[in-house]
């Protein structure tokens, strides 16, 4: 951050800037996603790359096709479409047919972002809109989790990935349940170390908790996002599920399992922190994080689906304008803030 040498500064406040532009922020997040993408490739092989390419292609195609119709022109250069595509891809199962992944990308940008007025105007996280649409449209494909191939068979592409457009995927012989699914339906807890190291089945980006955590800490230190949101989400999940676990006498999963399993880390660090769809003030960030955390635990333990991070974040996205209203910082010297 080197301040330019101004001879005569002719502009309105603010005068001190951090030099952060939208493309730069997007680049930072894409770089922050890099290790997670690499981990996905390590565990799931070429299929991971193909799925990520398909979602990104869909997202960029929607941005190009619909973006030009917007009054402010296309925002293709700021990289937000690619980021949406990547994040969406990381939430999908590894064996998903590529045409579905591509439709997910199209819907994420074409339905989740552009109709609201483009980047900065969208109410919901576009990547999660894309995933919610896929989950509602193709519930079967979105809940068949192929197990890890491992690095030895990197070039093995899941046959279900290559299903023809609009056609069903061949059932995969290597399907296996996610840790949350095993907990919900078979009451079998996965070891915390496996959850951290990614030695489980699950969506592309969610399996390896350690990589996500490290990336998150680095990005928080670089102030790419507000650290309060993920910290508050994780603490709330720990506290609420810990309390339920302590009172439930073995009927409920341990808080550490809740923390490491499913898409919680991925969602808390890469999706809930989206600056467009999360509250602006620090106080709002705490409320937002607590809301997501409580909803995640409620949906996971008592909902119909094993995983609830997506819906928890989407619901709190919907509440964000309200949170922003009630958590507005009070200007110095003014009376009580008008809520």
């Amino acid at each position: 951050m080197t301040p330019r040498d101004p001879h005569l500064l002719l502009q309105a406040a603010p005068f001190l800037r951090r030099g952060i532009t939208t493309p730069r922020l997007m680049t930072e997040v894409v770089i922050g996603l890099g290790p997670v993408v690499l981990a996905a490739c390590y565990y799931f092989g070429l299929s991971a790359l193909l799925v990520l390419a398909a979602t990104s292609a869909g997202a960029v195609a929607a941005e190009v096709a619909l973006g030009s119709a917007r009054p402010r022109g296309a925002s293709i250069r700021d990289g937000s479409a690619i980021l949406t595509g990547l994040v969406l891809g990381l939430t999908l199962p590894p064996g998903i047919p590529l045409w579905m992944a591509c439709i997910g990308g199209l819907v994420a940008v074409g339905l989740g972002k552009l109709p609201f007025g483009g980047l900065g105007q969208n109410l919901f996280n576009p990547a999660l809109i894309g995933r919610a649409f896929l989950q509602a449209a193709f519930p079967g494909a979105l809940t068949s989790w192929t197990s890890q191939a491992g690095p030895s068979s990197f070039f093995h592409v899941h046959p279900s990935s290559l299903a023809l457009p609009f056609m069903q995927a061949a059932p995969d012989a290597l399907a296996s349940a996610t840790p949350l699914g095993m907990m919900k339906f078979e009451h079998h807890a996965t070891a915390f170390s496996d959850l951290l190291l990614g030695n489980t089945s699950g969506s592309l980006g969610e399996t390896c908790g350690l990589v996500i955590l490290i990336c998150g800490i680095v990005m928080a230190i670089r102030r790419v996002f507000d650290w309060r949101i993920p910290v508050c989400i994780l603490l709330t999940v720990l506290a609420v599920s810990g309390a339920i676990w302590a009172f439930g006498q073995g009927r409920y999963p341990s808080p550490w399992f809740m923390l490491g399993s499913g898409g919680l880390l991925l969602g808390a660090i890469y999706m809930a922190t989206d600056p467009v769809t999360s509250p602006m003030s620090p106080r709002g960030a705490w409320i937002f994080g607590a809301g997501v955390g409580v909803l995640v635990v409620l949906i996971r333990l008592w909902g119909g689906l094993p995983e609830g991070v997506m819906y928890a974040i989407l619901l709190m996205n919907a509440a964000t304008p309200l949170i922003d209203r009630v958590s507005q910082p009070r200007p110095l010297g003014r009376g009580r803030a008008v809520a």
């Binding site: 509602a136 449209a137 193709f138 056609m167 069903q168």
Partner: peptide, 13 residues
């Protein structure tokens, strides 16, 4: 599309 069509469940909801 034949028997292998994957229906978009959400569309009829």
């Amino acid at each position: 599309f034949g028997p292998h069509f994957e229906p978009w469940v959400i569309m009829i909801l």
